[in-house]
């Protein structure tokens, strides 16, 4: 199956945003020793990072094509 309209760069952007958000949540959760911080990490952080990883892995299988290099050699 191929998502012809969706290029790998779009997949990577979505995966990147999800992973960065999840990692920011993880940093926030490490600031205090509290059950809510554990819940924040376990439910929000892990979900965002995990989803980001899945989107990246999906890009390897389903993405339409590899992105062109922006800066071509002279």
């Amino acid at each position: 199956m191929r998502f012809t309209g969706i290029g790998i760069d779009k997949f990577l952007r979505v995966a990147g945003v999800l992973i960065i958000l999840g990692l920011i949540v993880e940093i926030i959760s490490l600031l205090r020793v509290h059950p809510l911080m554990f819940a924040l990490f376990a439910f929000v952080g892990v979900s965002l990072i995990g989803l980001g990883i899945l989107v990246y892995l999906a890009s390897l299988v389903f993405a339409a094509g590899t992105p062109q290099k922006v800066d071509s050699p002279r």
Binding site: L12, A15, G16, I19, G22, L23, E26, S29, L30, M37, F38, F41, A42, G45, V46, I49, G50, G52, I53, Y56, L57
Partner: peptide
């Protein structure tokens, strides 16, 4: 996008 985030999840869970 895969190995390091997975490591961060594992290390974060262990720390928590």
């Amino acid at each position: 996008l895969c190995a390091l985030p997975a490591l961060c999840i594992g290390a974060g869970m262990f720390t928590h």
